[in-house]
Design a protein around this nucleic acid. Structure first.
Length: 203
DNA sequence: CTAGTGATCCGCT
DNA sequence: GCGGATCACTAGA
């Protein structure tokens, strides 16, 4: 069936009404850009309001309001008073689920990212959620913006010849629900925030 | 490679 | 007050 072009937006390459765990898995390998700067998503984590590590656990508040809004949009929060971290809102409005973008393989706008990060090493530009936020220039003003419209762009990986292998493991830096294996990463990537212990799953 | 520590905001207890 | 969905840096194995 032909897809009518009814707006300037590129269609989102994922169904963000799916559970955040599924979205987190499927985001691996996709291209994320902010004003043309970014790269390939190599690490994500899923969060859901049914589980106490999520910012949406305990209901809607001013700070987490975007998590309860329309799916496919950005939720940006301040971490440890220092960093800005980017999430993708998932699932039906009101549920409060999201996927934290933890690491990118830098492919677009390396110069801008190096300037913002004050680093040369491409492996350290986007290896961690705070680093991603800084490299892409994301802050609170990006809260609630759609990911399929400028300044954001989210595109399916080009040339999917080889099947993508995805590692799974426990989430990083949390103290609750640490047993849930809701962290996903591209197997063998050199751009992860931390290595995975055991391998599993595929795409 | 892993482990420990300080920096620094904001919302909640 | 307290404590994070973190990072950069240091020391030591």
């Amino acid at each position: 069936m032909p897809s009518p072009r009814r707006s300037r937006r590129a269609a989102l390459p994922i169904d963000f009404e799916a559970p955040s765990v599924e979205v987190a898995h499927r985001l691996i390998g996709m291209l994320l850009l902010v004003d043309g700067v970014g790269g390939r998503i190599v690490e994500t984590e899923a969060y859901d309001s049914t589980e106490p590590a999520a910012h949406s656990f305990g209901g809607q508040r001013t700070r987490n309001a975007p998590l309860f809004g329309p799916p496919g949009r950005a939720y940006v929060y301040r971490s440890y008073g220092i960093h800005w971290c980017l999430n993708v809102v998932c699932r039906e409005a009101g549920h409060g689920a999201g996927v934290l973008i933890r690491a990118l393989e830098p492919t677009h706008g390396l110069d801008r990212m190096r300037a913002r990060r004050g680093l040369e090493d491409p492996r350290l530009l986007c290896a961690g959620p705070g680093r991603v936020g800084q490299a892409l220039g994301v802050d609170a003003s990006y809260n609630g913006l759609a990911l399929d419209a400028p300044p954001f762009a989210l595109l399916a990986a080009a040339g999917d010849a080889s099947p993508l292998e995805v590692d799974v493991g426990p989430r990083i830096g949390i103290s609750k629900a640490i047993e849930l294996p809701w962290r996903f990463g591209e197997k063998g990537s050199r751009f992860l925030s931390k290595p995975f212990k055991r391998t599993q799953a595929l795409a």
